[in-house]
């Protein structure tokens, strides 16, 4: 059992952001898989962040919010990969974009592969 790495461990799918899973051989590529989520901050956190902004530094509320959202995006990516019958996703990349005011889209994409 692996300790919590901050990334979701669904269906034993190996993730990496390099071209291979180190130490394993890729047999087949199954195309691009994506996962995205749009999250808005809630007003309580917004107000607290406003106070914290006076002195600057880290805004912990937003850090947690974005961490949760990114985990959700990754989870969707992993589910997409599992549906295609892959057992690994390589070259995972993250992207963030601000859509309508106060909401952020978190996006993860990668290539689903079957490894030995």
């Amino acid at each position: 059992m692996q300790p919590n790495t901050g990334t979701p461990q669904v269906a034993q799918i190996a993730l990496s952001n390099i071209e291979t899973i180190p130490g394993r051989t890729i047999i087949q590529s199954l195309g691009v898989v994506t996962g995205s989520t749009v999250r808005a901050k809630h007003i309580g956190r917004d107000i607290m962040a406003g106070f914290k902004n006076i002195v600057g530094g880290e805004l912990k509320g937003y850090t947690e919010l974005l961490q949760e959202s990114r985990n959700e995006a990754l989870q969707r990516l992993v589910l997409d990969a599992a549906q295609r019958g892959a057992n690994a996703v390589v070259n995972v990349r993250f992207a963030t974009s601000a859509v309508a005011g106060g909401a952020a889209e978190l996006f993860a994409y990668g290539t689903a592969v079957i490894i030995q």
Binding site: G6, T7, S16, P22, N53, I54, G56, G57, T63, L74
Partner: peptide, 25 residues
Amino acid sequence: RSPLPGRRVVRSDLLAINIVAAPSH
């Protein structure tokens, strides 16, 4: 992008961490 030659990898996983940094007023 790849481990240094001559080393055998036994385990790997994606690690990600974030931080929201803000300047003061």
